Amino acid sequence: MHVAPVGGTAVQDYVALAEIELCGELIIAASAAHEERLSLQSIDEVLRVAEERDASASRR
């Protein structure tokens, strides 16, 4: 068995970490919805779709 050294050489995948965080936020939102389905608008809010769209537009 190979274990990564403790000296801080582990590589972090920031995209994967961000995806995991967003999935967690979706799970929390779905749990809070109590038996109701999340609307597409609610999902977009949780995933901050509008914020990303605005940020992308301002970079152009």
Rank of each mutant, 00 (worst) to 15 (best):
C23I: 11
C23G: 12
V15C: 06
E19C: 05
E25H: 05
V6G: 03
E35A: 07
V49L: 08
E35P: 01
C23F: 09
A57Y: 12
L26S: 07
I20M: 07
V11G: 00
V46P: 02
G7D: 12
A4M: 09
V15N: 07
A30P: 00
V15P: 01
S56D: 13
I20S: 02
H34R: 10
A57D: 14
S31I: 09
A16V: 05
V15M: 09
E36I: 06
E35V: 04
R60S: 15
G7R: 00
E19M: 07
A55W: 11
E35W: 03
A29V: 02
A10M: 04
A57M: 15
Q41T: 12
Q12Y: 11
D13T: 01
E35Q: 07
E19N: 06
L17Y: 09
Q41C: 11
E51N: 11
E21Q: 09
H2T: 04
D44Q: 13
V11D: 01
V6F: 00
A33V: 01
T9K: 03
S58P: 04
R59D: 13
H2N: 00
A18M: 10
Y14D: 10
E36W: 00
R59H: 13
I28T: 14
A16Y: 06
G8E: 01
E36C: 07
A29T: 03
V3K: 06
H2A: 02
L40R: 08
A55Y: 11
S42T: 12
L40I: 10
A57H: 13
I20Y: 04
R48W: 02
H34N: 08
I27L: 13
P5H: 01
G24F: 06
L17C: 08
G7A: 11
Q12I: 14
I28P: 00
E52M: 14
R53Y: 12
L22K: 02
M1H: 08
I43P: 01
V46M: 04
S58F: 12
I27N: 03
E35Y: 01
M1P: 11
A18P: 03
C23W: 06
I20V: 09
E35F: 05
A18K: 07
V3G: 00
S58D: 15
V15W: 06
S58V: 14
S39E: 06
R53D: 14
A30S: 10
L38N: 02
L47K: 08
E45I: 11
R60C: 14
L47I: 12
Y14K: 05
A55N: 13
A32N: 05
P5T: 02
L17F: 11
V46D: 01
E45S: 13
V6S: 07
L17V: 09
D13R: 04
R60W: 13
I27D: 08
V6Y: 01
Y14L: 12
E21P: 05
D54Y: 10
V3C: 00
S31N: 11
I27K: 07
S31L: 13
T9I: 05
